[in-house]
Design a protein around this nucleic acid. Structure first.
Lengths: 216, 216, 216, 216
DNA sequence: CATGAATGAGATTTCATTCAT
DNA sequence: TATGAATGAAATCTCATTCAT
C-alpha cells in the first residue's frame, strides 16, 4: 500500500522536470544541512529523492552547483520569512519587541536555515561568495529595523547613537546562537535547551535586553 | 638553506614522542578547524606536521580519535582562557563589564575555538557527546557570573529574577555569533566586520546591552 | 588484435550485472584459492576480472563478503559434484567402490575446492561458521553412504558396527589428503605425486582399504 | 607479582641471545600456525615474545626468514616425534597397529604441526621448497613402515604388492585429515569432532582399515 | 527524459622494515 | 645488545562523476 502510494507520488513527478528538480533540492537541503558539503553524499540524495545520480547531474552538473542551489533555496526562505514580519504598531517599543521576537522565531522554527548558514560560515562563505546572486542576500530586516529605530528616536524614547548594523547583529545573535549551539550548550550546561521553558525564557530575555539597551 | 633549517626543525622533534604527538595535534586542530571533520585530510596533517600517516595512526588509531584529541585540546584552551578572567572589583557593574569584555575577547582572539565549536554543533556534538571527559566541559565562567550577579543583587543595583543560564548564553551569543558568522555577515551587510572599528563597537554594545538589562 | 578481442569480451559482459558479478566471483575464487584470504588482493581481482575495485565493493561491500561469496560458490560446486554420484548397482561392493572412486575424483578434479576448504580449516572455519547458509552445507554423500552400508549389512556382506560419520571422514581423507598435501608430500617423498601412475595407485588403494575394512 | 615474575623471566633471557632467539621462534610458530604467513603480524610476534621488532630483524632479517625458521623448527619436532615411535614387537600386526596409532597420535597431539604443514601446502610449499635443508625433511617413519611390511610379508601374513609410498600417504591421511579439517567437518557433520569418543573411534577405525587392507 | 552500471581518482588504514639512541 | 620511534609502500575502501541503454 505504502509502496503503491510512493510509486504514485513518483509517477506524478515524472514528466514534470521542475517538480523533480525542486524535489531534488529539498532532499539536498536535508542532506547538506545534516552533514555539510563534504559530509553529504550524492548517493544519499539520489536515493532519498527517489531519483538517480544521473538525473541529478543532468540538472545540476556537479555537487557544488547542487549545493549552491540548495543554499540559494535556503536563503530565499530566510528572506521570505523576514518579509512576513509585520511591524505596524504606533509604539516603537512594541514594534521592536515584535521584531526581536520574530527574528528569534525564524531561527527557532527553521533549524535548517540555521544549519545551512553555519555550514557556510565555517567554510568561510566560499559558496556564498562566489555564487548566490547579490539581491538574494539583501535582507529586508535591516530596513525595518532602521525604520523602527528612527521612529523611536523621533519619539524621544530611544537613545541616540545607535549603530544599526551592530544592533542588527546583536539581535540576530541572541536568537541564532541559542539554536546554532544548542547541542554543545546542552551538554555544557547540562540542561535540555530544546525545552519550551528555556526557549521562552531566552526569547523574553532577548527582548528585554534589546529594549533596555534602546531605552533613553 | 631553507631545506637545511627545516631539517633541523625536524631533527629537534625527532625521538621526542610527546612533542611529536602535540605537534600532530596542533596541525590537526589547524586542519579540522579549517575544513571540518569530513573536509580534513590525514594526508595534509601528515605533511604539514612533517610526520607521516603511519605515525599518526600509531598515536591516534583513527581519524575520529585524532579529531577527538583535537577537540579536547581546543576545549582545554577555551577553559584555560576563561580561567584567566579576573573579576576582583568592588563594583559589580565593573566586574560585569569586565566579564562581558573578556568573554568577547576570548572569541575575538581564538578563532580556532570558535570554528571548532561550530563544527561540533553542526554535527550535533557527536564527538563531544561520546568522548571529551566531563570535567573538561565544566566552564568556570558560569560560576563567576553567578558570583557577580549575586553581589549586584545584594547591593541592590541589579534586578532580581535573572535566569543565570540564559544570561550566560546571551553573553556568549553577543561575542560568539559576531565571529562565527563573520563571513556571511560581512557579505550580507557589505561591510568588513574584521575592522577594528566595528569589532570595538560590537564589544561596547554587548557590554551596554548586558548592563542595561541588569540595571534595576 | 588481442586488444580488440579483449575489448569485445569486455563489451559482452558490460551492462549485464549478474554476469559481471559471477565473473568477479570466479576471479575471486581463483585468487582466494591461490593465496588465501590474507594473501589475496582486491586489486588483482579487479584487474583479472577486468572490472574495477569500486564495482567489486558495490556488489560485495567488503573483502570479507567477497570471500564468503566465493566460499559459498565453491561449496555449491562441491555439493553439486557429490550430487552427480550415481550408485545404482545391485552389488553393495560395487556401489561402495564407485562411491570411494567418485569421492576421490571430486578432489582430484577440483583442486580449487580442496584449497578453499583447506583455507577455511586453517582459519578455524571462521567464515563458514558465520555465513554460508546451512542447507548449503548439507552433504548428500553421507546419505548415499548410509544407504549402501545398510544394503551391504542386510545382504550380510558388510560387517556390523560401522560408525557412519567416521567412515565418511576416512573415505574423504583418503582422497582429500593426497591432493591437499601434494606439495609437501612430493618433496618429502621425492616423487611427483601429480603423475597419473601414483594417482591411480592411490585411488585403487583407497578403494581396497575401504572394501577390506567393510568385508565381514 | 605477576609483572614481577615476568620481568624476571625477561631478565633471565637477557644476554642470552640463543634463548631469546628460541623464544622468538616459539612465539612466531604460534602466530604463523594461527594465521599463516600473510595473516601473521611481526608486531604481534614482537609483543607476545616480549622483545621488539628491531631485535627480530636483527636475528632473522625478514618475515620470510623468520617463517622459514619457524617451519624448520616445526619439521624438526615432527621428525623427532616420529623418531620416538618404537616398533619392536615380534608380531607385525601389532607393530603396524602401533605405527598407525602413533602416527595418528602425532597429529592428535600436535595441532601446530598440522596447521603449519597445511599452511605450507596451501602455498604450494613455497618456503619448504626453497629453504628447509633436505635432511630435515627425511622422515624416519617410512623406513620403519618398510621394515614392518617386509616382516609381515616374510611371515606370510601381509599381502604382496604393497605400494609403500601410497600406504605411507594413506596412513598419514587417516590421522592428518581428521585434525586438519576438524573445523569444517564439525560444522558439516554437526558433531564435535574434538570429543574423545569420536577421536578414539577414528583412531581405531584407521587401525582396522590398514590392518584389514594388509591382511593376506 | 530516465535509469542503473561502470569508472578512476583519491581517501583512510595497515604493516614490514629501518633509524637513532 | 636492546629498544621504541619513525617511515614508505601498498592495502582496503569511498565517492563524485560518466557511460550505455
Amino acid at each position: 500500500m505504502e509502496a503503491e502510494a510512493e510509486k504514485l507520488a513518483k509517477r506524478k513527478r515524472i514528466r514534470d522536470p521542475l517538480r523533480t528538480q525542486q524535489h531534488i533540492i529539498d532532499t539536498a537541503v536535508e542532506e547538506f544541512t545534516e552533514r555539510g558539503f563534504d559530509g553529504a553524499r550524492i548517493d544519499a540524495i539520489a536515493e532519498q529523492s527517489q531519483t538517480n545520480k544521473s538525473l541529478i547531474y543532468k540538472y545540476f552538473n556537479s555537487k557544488e552547483e547542487l549545493y549552491i542551489a540548495s543554499l540559494a533555496d535556503t536563503y530565499e526562505k530566510l528572506r521570505a520569512s523576514q518579509h512576513e514580519i509585520d511591524l505596524d504598531h504606533p509604539n516603537p517599543n512594541e514594534s521592536m519587541r515584535k521584531l526581536v521576537e520574530s527574528t528569534f522565531d525564524v531561527f527557532a522554527n527553521n533549524p535548517k536555515i540555521v544549519r545551512m548558514l553555519t555550514h557556510e560560515n565555517v567554510q568561510n562563505a566560499r559558496f556564498l561568495k562566489q555564487a548566490v546572486s547579490i539581491k538574494m542576500l539583501y535582507t529586508p530586516l535591516i530596513d525595518k529595523l532602521a525604520h523602527v529605530i528612527r521612529k523611536g528616536q523621533e519619539q524621544g524614547i530611544f537613545r541616540p547613537n545607535i549603530e544599526l548594523k551592530n544592533l542588527y547583529i546583536s539581535i540576530s545573535a541572541l536568537g541564532y546562537f541559542y539554536f546554532s549551539n544548542i547541542h554543545t550548550l546542552s551538554i555544557v550546561l547540562d540542561e535540555d535547551l530544546q525545552s519550551a521553558k528555556l526557549v521562552t525564557q531566552q526569547r523574553e530575555q532577548a527582548v528585554e535586553m534589546v529594549l533596555s539597551f534602546l531605552r533613553k
